[in-house]
């Protein structure tokens, strides 16, 4: 078999294994709950029979391993279980399917994340590469210290500064990103502008710094010096000699930062009351609605793992040593 294929398959296998172990960790969070949590969910007035029925519904009367496989089987079919909220002591169950709560929120979050990525990725690659090429110039120093400052800012600080300036002082954008399914696309973009800008500022700072470091590292290779000594022009050095070797580090930087976006989105959504997955998760954590937390964690972690996996695969298939084995 071609070594690329076997390396990629190996890497995919490892990714699947990681997903599997992560799913076990997320599943077992239920195991760590205190024994009387049924009471806590249903309220002190709940009858022992109601609590018992609730425990049976969660399958707590069966061994954990069996329960895990039932759970993961359901998850694979898109069934993330039923939320804790909406139940009460009387046994009347108004709880909702976790998936039905997550789905619309997930779409909103994906919308925000892609909007951010579309602005942030090209911008930071441009800034990072130019800063690396004009290293130690005034431009480089300004970009560098600006980004060093930005990464030191908590996300909510960046977000509130934007609200203060662009929403309450100059009324350019709305401070509450109030969107729903039937909002028109243009309106959606307008209302999501501030959260997207806030996220962009945070991501660009990280991504630009990492891109710059990766390019500088690359430009220090002896084969770049050799190209200079062959009289190759600056633009050709970049295009012919640096770029073909730069894919792996650049894709890694992008994937790492898109994964970081997953985290940043939680805080920014809360600030702008954006109806996304992060907001849902924080609410669920506050009310200790474990199935919803599990569902959200699974989706966030899965995205994160897949993005990193994708970057790994790209760096494998662009590696000349693997592309052209001995």
């Amino acid at each position: 078999m071609h070594p690329i294929l076997s390396t990629v398959i190996q890497r995919l296998g490892l990714g699947l294994l990681t997903l599997f172990i992560v799913s076990i960790i997320i599943f077992s969070s239920l195991e760590f709950l205190p024994g009387d949590f049924g009471q806590a969910v249903l309220g002190q007035a709940a009858l022992p029979e109601t609590v018992e029925a609730f425990r049976r519904e969660l399958g707590l009367d069966r061994p954990p391993i069996e329960r895990y496989f039932m759970w993961i089987g359901n998850v694979l079919q898109g069934d993330l279980g039923t939320a804790f909220s909406g139940r009460n002591a009387s046994g009347v169950d108004r709880s909702r399917e976790v998936w039905s709560m997550i789905e619309p929120r997930l779409m909103n979050t994906l919308f925000l994340a892609s909007m951010t990525a579309i602005i942030a990725v090209p911008l930071s690659l441009f800034l990072g590469i130019t800063a690396a090429l004009y290293r130690n110039s005034i431009y480089d120093r300004v970009v560098n210290s600006t980004t060093l400052t930005t990464i030191s800012f908590p996300e909510f600080f960046v977000a509130y500064i934007l609200i203060l300036v662009f929403s309450t002082y100059f009324k350019v954008f709305p401070s509450l990103a109030n969107i729903s399914d039937d909002t028109a696309l243009g309106e959606k973009i307008y209302r999501s502008a501030l959260p997207a800008i806030a996220l962009t500022m945070v991501i660009v700072a990280h991504m630009m710094r990492m891109t710059r470091a990766a390019i500088i590292n690359l430009l220090a290779s002896p084969y770049i010096e050799m190209a200079e000594l062959k009289g190759v022009s600056k633009s050709q050095i970049i295009l012919r000699h640096a770029l073909p070797n730069a894919w792996a580090p650049i894709v890694n930087v992008i994937a790492f930062n898109l994964a970081y976006l997953v985290v940043g989105v939680v805080v920014v959504e809360v600030v702008f009351v954006y109806p996304g997955l992060g907001q849902l998760m924080v609410d669920a954590v506050t009310s200790r609605d474990i199935p919803v937390v599990q569902g959200c964690a699974l989706i966030f972690a899965g995205t994160y793992i897949l993005l990193n996996l994708f970057a790994d695969v790209i760096s494998i298939i662009t590696n000349p040593r693997l592309l052209h084995p001995r």
Binding site: V262, V266, A297, F300, A301
Partner: peptide
């Protein structure tokens, strides 16, 4: 490796929901 495969803020949120904040 496995612990780092989950974004730490997400992991922290999950653990806080179990053990209490």
């Amino acid at each position: 490796d496995v612990l780092m495969a989950i974004p730490s803020l997400i992991f922290a949120l999950m653990l806080l929901s179990i053990f209490g904040a």
